[in-house]
Design a protein around this nucleic acid. Sequence first.
DNA 1: CCGAGGATAATTTTT
DNA 2: TTATCCTCGG
Length: 837
Amino acid sequence: MIDSSDDIPFFGDSEPVKRPSGLAARAMAARNQSAPAPDYLIGLNPEQRQAVVTTEGPLLVLAGAGTGKTRVLTTRIAHILATGLAFPSQILAVTFTNKAAREMKERVGMLVGGAVEGMPWLGTFHSIGVKLLRRHAELVGLRSDFTILDTDDVVRLIKQLIQAEGLDDKRWPARQFAQMIDGWKNKGMAPHEIPEGDARAFANGKGRELYEAYQNRLKTLNACDFGDLLCHPIRMLRANPDVLADYHRKFKYLLVDEYQDTNTAQYMWLRLLAQRPQSKEPGQRGGSVNVCCVGDDDQSIYGWRGAEVDNILRFDKDFPGATIIRLERNYRSTEHILGAAGHLIAHNEGRLGKTLFTEQSDPEHEKVQVHAAWDSEEEARAVGETIEQLQRPDANGRRHNLNDMAILVRASFQMREFEDRFVTMGLNYRVIGGPRFYERQEIRDAMAYFRAVCQPADDLAFERIVNVPKRGLGDATIRQLHDYARARDIPMIAAARDLVETEELKPKARKSLRDVVEGFTRWSAALENTPHTELAERILEESGYTEMWQNDKSAEAPGRLENLKELIRSMDFYESMRGFLEHVALVMDAEQNEDMDAVSIMTLHSAKGLEFETVFLPGWEEGLFPHQRSLDEGGRSGLEEERRLAYVGLTRAKKRAHLWFVSNRRIHGLWQSTIPSRFLDELPEAHVEVAEAEMSYGGYNRFGGGSSGFSAGRQNPYGASRFDNPEIFASTYETPGWKRAQANRTDATSRNWGSRSGHQVERVGYGESGPRGVRTIEGELVAKSTTDTPSAFSIGDRVFHMKFGNGNVAAIEGNKLTIDFDKAGQKRVLDGFVTPV
DNA sequence: CCGAGGATAATTTTT
DNA sequence: TTATCCTCGG
């Protein structure tokens, strides 16, 4: 068993292991003598306090952004412990991310002091799933030392299976099937449970068989994917009522963080554990479920990966008699930010409904600012300028730290422009998210070595490194190994051991393979009696892996070596190599250095849960935000999720929020004219102000001729938006005919934006009148429609383009024109965006 | 076994 | 446009 943390007797936690002392003791005393509230309740507002002390029965805490959600959760745990309602090991507390789990552990620790041991059952759904599985692995046909595969392994495995089926792995991409499996597992569905339609949709109708083959393969590999960490426990608990009953007895309190993000499997898992049969034990009313879910339906932004907002919306039906507490008092943002965010999110249907309020109201507070820029380059430049301005001391000598500012983008391609700009400006920035430490090639290779040593059955790991560094063990040899292993149902490494003793291999391959096998034999032997960091170093050394990078002349090689050193160093924190591998499988994040003062750049998704004084939200344009794909694939609910994303973005800001939209954005290399996001029009006038003048930066006055270069001659296919018109833009902020525009908009949306199959794209040239079409900004569609739509232009034509001015057509490919512009040089644009002169 | 060049696809991300 | 992946040729 891997976990040593659960040192409290597993079943029958009837004897206190440690007497709570200090704060906890005082709290207990307070409870017994109905004395004044214990310290930890002080400073909580009435709703928060109620959420903390309502320990019995189902409870849903609807915690709006910045309303002290984590505080409630941690205080609640502290309260349960302090009042002796349960021991740490009797509380099951689940979060989504390791970060959240870590934070919660820390904060509970601070509240309760050293009085109680760390909570063994506080963790992510997945880590708790692993814990359950390690205990009861045999009940689902695994050994307790099973391996956890990550996405990369899974894809490679599936690819093998697809090829083994004799299918074309181009036509049926493994990645896509991996996602399908993940989707099924998110719903808790085993191969025989998936809908017929789904099964038919892949691999010439062999989807189900393939899924089955995949599961079988995992079993032989003694491995789990992430989805299994949820699904196996469910199956195990269902099939073994006695085990389930043990856990029912064990867990007195259940807490779930971010409930709006739970998927169906997690929901089933939770219900299984929460639905305790009638119980006469003290501390629980007969049959009631002490389950407390905390979440915010307005911040549900992970529908695309299986989260079911419905879980939170249905809570009181799932748990009859549930108490629902709303936390609406916001401690983070100004009245303007809350006003803007609240008004925006009110456009969503199907929400439980909350209105955040604050007592921080001050005429000095800035309204939410909306800025327009000509294109994304100007957007980045202007944001950079604003940041510099904030950095300079103001009239009161106050300056702002870069750490207090963040740029939150919808899609990561937007980051680049900001990075470029900040590099030239010499402005410190850090990108949050992005490729992670443990996903780097060299780290994964090294890990594969370690895995293969610890886990001789881990064929995937073995296969990954058997020829890394190059040892002349090509495809042919690998296939041979593979076949031999499959035929005898043994791990590949065992097959290798056998094969080197035979004459079946070519002498060269045989020699190399023998070296590899001997290496693994040595390392396995050393596993028990060598310090694991030392062994790790030895493995990388003796296998020639380190050397491989030392000989590599590429620019990244030194960095990779550095990463390997870092990997070894970080192993020091773990007791054993196995412990380390387990950690890495589940915790894929690595900390960022917080020392430097720098602006953060990240996606809106990764910003959830964070807060900044000043937040920049660029790219509020139709097609980007709300994103085209969300609209195409998710329809109305897709739009609502985008709106929640906007809400999340806005509510990250404490003091200042700057929204931006541009008129032109380059998408897949082509310049596209864009229109302001509908979300901008959904903001309340009272809390929003349209910023001016930013546009004439550095004399970038454009060819359009208008003073701002913005919106002249542009047509909004939806009809009028208050952001279309420069005069309105200046001050008055009227929304004439907005209702009508809204109507046109939805109309147009369903008519045209739902087309993913190409060719129905209607483009509207500038100044064209007649029936209004929608100008798609979806590069894919436009690009695909090229081949059979000959352009109306011919080489040599004199044309005018909004961004680049006048020029001559130099080349034509379908509807893509290459134009030599007089001022801007050669560019490629869509013919819809130029007019003949 | 490596490198070049063509095809392909380009939201969001945790575990 | 750009990045990545994969195939093909040397």
